[in-house]
Amino acid sequence: MTEAVGQRLAAALAPLASLLALLVLWEAGVRWFEVDSFLLPPPSAIGAALLDSAGPLWDNSLYTLRTFAAGFGLSICVALPLAVLVTASRWLAAAIYPLLVLIQSIPKVALAPILIVAMGTSEAPRVVITFLVAFFPLVIATATGLLHTPPELLRLARSLRASALQRLLYIRLPHAVPFIFSGLKMSATLSVIGVVVAEFVAADRGLGYLMTSAMAFFNTPLAYAAMLLLSLISIAAFHGIGLLQALLFPWSTGQPNAAG
């Protein structure tokens, strides 16, 4: 028992140790070779920037989080019904699918300046850009889950005279849950990228804006600090979704002992 705990502790400490080693190496290298801070700031300078600018970083994080939540939320609201539609009939699939692929094939970074002009400098274009970057993988993942429902389960439903709606609600959607959650994870991390792209192009607040304005003044440590926070948002969203899945749908995580 204690041996197992020790092993788990060692497994948890291993990435921390390697991260620490990397930071020490980084710090030592920058100091040794006397690299200018605006080219590559040492970790200590980034840490100092985090503390010194804690206020602005916090405010801008909240702003970025708001756009992230709106864009990601919009992705979910559009992607799930769209996936159901695409899988509902051959005709709908033929009608909608090419449009989806067309939208996906447009480089969203290139679309950002155009959308800003078209929609003005409000929050709306940033939400739309985030949505456009994030929604496609969620549609694909959900549609895959819905289409890959085991045929024997559908046969069971048919033998029970289940309606199309019942088949969707009781068989296809539950079966798609693990697929939906892996789509959500992809979509969430892409949403963070979408927000930053939008804030690069046009924003007066947010971590993306903070990064560009910091770099305009060669305040590289602050830009790194903002980037660190963006990564944290992305990681938190990814693991938060995994946690949500384990809490709400324990059977879908592939662990047979996760009984409800």
Binding site: P150, E152, L153, R155, L156, A157, S159, L160, R161, A162, Q166, Y170, I171, P174, H175, V177, F249, W251, S252, A259, G260
Partner: peptide, 29 residues
């Protein structure tokens, strides 16, 4: 109506506990 089918594979719904699997035909009906 009034006909039940049983397959070679159990074809249980993995997201439902045993009791809800047994009740599934009644839920559909």
């Amino acid at each position: 109506d009034a006909v039940s089918l049983m397959f070679q594979a159990p074809t249980l719904l993995p997201w439902l506990p045993v009791l809800d699997n047994v009740l599934f035909p009644l839920r559909i009906a």
